[in-house]
């Protein structure tokens, strides 16, 4: 294996400091994703935490990878999650999905299935109603089907 960070080291990098997502993993992530993340954050600091990103560590096929994301929030008019953006490092496009919540969502949580072109990190960044940004990252290993037809 190369120096690609494992889930544990990626978590450690993100936990290293508020600017970690913009600084540390950026070294290992393609520029396009960093540009997309920067466009989303407007260059504001991204804090690790409050976001739970649940993606299987190992999947048998990258065509439909289950993804669950949730954010700790009271979801009141004064304090709620406005948006969660999911990014990936190695697909042709860095964006995966943007989930827009309202206080009437009741819970800032969603589930979908995504395409991943190979093993990579998936990032989730949440924007709160106060403008603060929170994040989580997950490392997914996509195994090649033994007899893949295409």
């Amino acid at each position: 294996m190369t120096a690609r960070p494992t889930r544990r080291t990626a978590m450690a990098l993100v936990l290293a400091g508020p600017l970690a997502l913009r600084l540390s993993p950026a070294a290992a992530t393609p520029d396009e994703m960093r540009a997309a993340v920067d466009a989303f954050t407007g260059g504001r600091p991204v804090n690790p935490g409050r976001v739970t990103l649940d993606v299987p560590l190992l999947v048998e096929n990258g065509n439909a990878v289950p993804l669950k994301v949730s954010v700790e929030s009271p979801m009141t008019e004064d304090d709620y999650v406005k948006e969660v953006a999911i990014f990936n490092e190695r697909n042709p496009l860095p964006d995966v999905i943007r989930l827009h919540f309202t206080p009437r969502s009741g819970r800032a949580a969603a589930e979908t299935r995504i395409r991943l072109s190979g093993s990579q990190n998936v990032h989730a960044i949440a924007r709160m109603s106060d403008g603060s940004l929170w994040s989580a990252v997950a490392d997914v290993i996509v195994t090649a089907p033994a007899c893949a037809e295409s």
Binding site: N63, N88, L93, V96, I97, L99, T102, R113
Partner: peptide, 18 residues
């Protein structure tokens, strides 16, 4: 609730929200 969706969402899309 609203979702902006990109080509990385799987065929026959599934969504769950609250």
């Amino acid at each position: 609730f609203r979702a902006e969706i990109f080509p990385a969402v799987a065929a026959n899309p599934f969504l769950s929200f609250f």
